[in-house]
């Protein structure tokens, strides 16, 4: 029986499959379909200091093997999460990662302070949401900005801090190093790629917000390349994501250097996707004669 357990910043995950932020809410809806305790962890819907209503619809558009979303960080605010959703989540046996997004450095710091005394296991800094004007691009793509906001949050946080990197960047390795130098204990990537879908008959973009964040299988090759580059630019652990649809896809990210993976869009195609990915990853290890999933991390042999 191959072992699936992984450890990131001292936090133990029963398996390396984590629900990606934004596709899984706070876990309750999917828990109606299966016990979410079978997952390694959950990164909750992006939280902001104050409640946010989000963007007008349509908020989703489809493209070949991908989707674009522009939800605009609709969420009940960090306090409501702590009071109403976290107690429920902590009854479940999985790592709880609070994904936080702000429009100023102070917002991030305040959220890290509010979350410090809670049972949240890790923080994930969403510095790259493409759907919110003030946040998104401002922090996520320039190394000096990444350094500034990461350093501030790491100073205030009690839990390990994961910085979620944007692929909409000139040099992913440079951004990864900026986060590491600022004190990030882990990285996750990739967030969505900014894109657009056009309705040629209406002569308008499909999304109300015009642009949206692209995800799904179509982005996987870009994600794999970036995860490989980021993982080889830093010493801190990397969590890989971008278009994972199967256990073999998860293995590909781990071979590129990811210690764990996040699954997002596939939850829409198949609501049972993540439990399946866990068992497929298990089967992949058996098939390849690997006894411990950690043994495939960074085991890629480049040509």
């Amino acid at each position: 029986m191959p072992k699936l357990g992984v450890e990131i910043c001292g936090v133990k995950f029963k398996n390396p499959v984590i629900a990606a932020s934004g596709t899984f809410g706070f876990g309750r809806e999917f828990d109606a379909l299966y016990d979410i305790s079978v997952l390694g962890g959950i990164s909750v819907k992006g939280l902001t200091l104050q409640k946010r209503l989000g963007n007008p619809p349509p908020r989703i558009a489809e493209t070949k093997s991908g989707i674009l979303n522009s939800v605009g960080l609709q969420n009940p605010g960090v306090d409501a999460f702590i009071n109403e959703d976290l107690p429920w989540l902590k009854q479940k046996d999985l790592v709880v990662i609070a994904n936080i997004a702000g429009s100023t450095v102070e917002d991030y710091v305040k959220m890290a302070e509010k979350l410090a005394p809670t049972a949240v296991d890790m923080l994930e800094m969403n510095i790259s949401c493409p759907n919110v004007k003030e946040s998104g691009v401002a922090f996520g793509v320039k190394p000096e900005k990444i350094f500034e906001v990461t350093k501030a949050v790491c100073g205030a946080a009690r839990q390990p801090v994961i910085v979620k990197l944007s692929p909409n960047a000139a040099d992913i390795a440079e951004n990864a190093r900026a986060a590491e130098e600022a004190g990030a204990q882990a990285l996750s990537l990739i967030n969505t790629l900014t894109g657009m879908v056009v309705d040629v008959y209406r002569k308008r973009p499909v999304l109300f917000n015009n642009f949206g964040g692209m995800s799904g299988a179509a982005v996987r090759p870009i994600a794999l390349r970036m995860v490989y580059q980021a993982a080889h630019a830093v010493k801190i652990p990397v969590i890989g994501m971008g278009g994972i649809t199967s256990g073999e896809d998860a293995a590909a990210f781990m071979l590129c250097g990811a210690r764990a993976v996040m699954v997002g869009t596939q939850n829409f195609s198949d609501p049972m996707a993540m439990p399946k990915i866990v068992s497929e990853l298990h089967r992949y290890l058996e098939k390849t004669g690997v006894v411990d999933v950690n043994d495939i991390v960074d085991a890629l042999v480049m040509n």
Binding site: G22, T23, F24, G25, R28, E29, F30, A32, L33, K45, L53, G54, P56, P57, P58, R59, I60, A61, I67, N69, V71, Q74, V206, N267, F268, P271
Partner: peptide, 21 residues
């Protein structure tokens, strides 16, 4: 409305309702 998960988790298929916000 255009939908994502269909379960209420992804907040994609929103509609505007009157509220005391």
């Amino acid at each position: 409305q255009r939908m994502g998960c269909g379960l209420g988790a992804c907040l994609v298929c929103s509609c505007k309702v009157k509220a005391k916000t």
